[in-house]
């Protein structure tokens, strides 16, 4: 029996047990040095859309990321605008992204900055294909490690037609795109 304001022996044992079990779970879930995580190689990705539909999470742990040094900050952006967009503006009918996860911000004529809203992005890669075909390929997919639940056998990797998923060291965690050596400077 505990006196009010003091921790009794039974409460102490309960708290210690909870702490031990919680710590054990955290220890199991946390990525230890030397462990491997799943990641998507953007050079192999074929933008099939299965990252959006085959992840065990909904929405998917795969998100579009943006390499600003590669981006051309184009007005007529293949990753933001529908191929046949009547106008180059933020009208919903002109947007390529099915969930409006890309924000277009005017910088100076004729340049615009594009930002991905990760909370909205479903990882469908529609913008990745548009950017790769008509632009510089600055938009690409990555598994967000803070969202990924690290399945032993990644459900998307099983469905990926290009075998673009691979296990990489947890310390590396991402396969980022960088500006090609000798490529022209962007704004």
């Amino acid at each position: 029996m505990s006196v009010k304001g003091q921790i009794g022996r039974r409460d102490f044992i309960r708290a210690a047990a909870a702490l031990g079990i919680g710590g054990g779970i955290w220890k199991t879930a946390a990525r230890e040095p030397g462990s491997m995580v799943w990641q998507l190689d953007p050079q192999q990705c074929v933008q099939c859309g299965r990252c959006a539909t085959h992840c065990v999470l909904n929405p998917s742990a795969v998100k579009c990321v943006h390499s600003y040094p590669i981006c051309g900050y184009c007005d007529l952006c293949g990753g933001y605008l529908q191929p046949g967009a009547k106008k180059r503006d933020t009208g919903a009918e002109n947007e390529l992204c099915p969930v409006s996860a890309i924000t277009r911000t005017f910088i100076e004529p004729p340049f615009f900055q594009y930002t991905i809203d990760e909370d909205l992005c479903v990882g469908c890669a529609k913008c990745v294909k548009g950017c790769g075909l008509f632009g510089n390929g600055s938009l690409y997919l990555q598994i967000k490690q803070d969202l990924c639940v690290h399945c032993n056998e990644c459900a998307i990797a099983r469905a990926c037609p290009a075998e673009a998923f691979q296990r990489i060291p947890a310390e590396q965690a991402y396969l980022l795109k960088t500006r090609p050596e000798g490529g022209p400077a962007q704004t």
């Binding site: 099939c48 299965r50 539909t53 191929p83 046949g84 529609k126 469905a159």
Partner: peptide, 18 residues
């Protein structure tokens, strides 16, 4: 068999008409 659905049409980038 993988019973999950394939990506819907809205996830596909379409320029075939052009």
């Amino acid at each position: 068999k993988d019973w999950r659905r394939d990506p819907p049409q809205s996830f596909r980038y379409e320029v075939a008409q052009y």
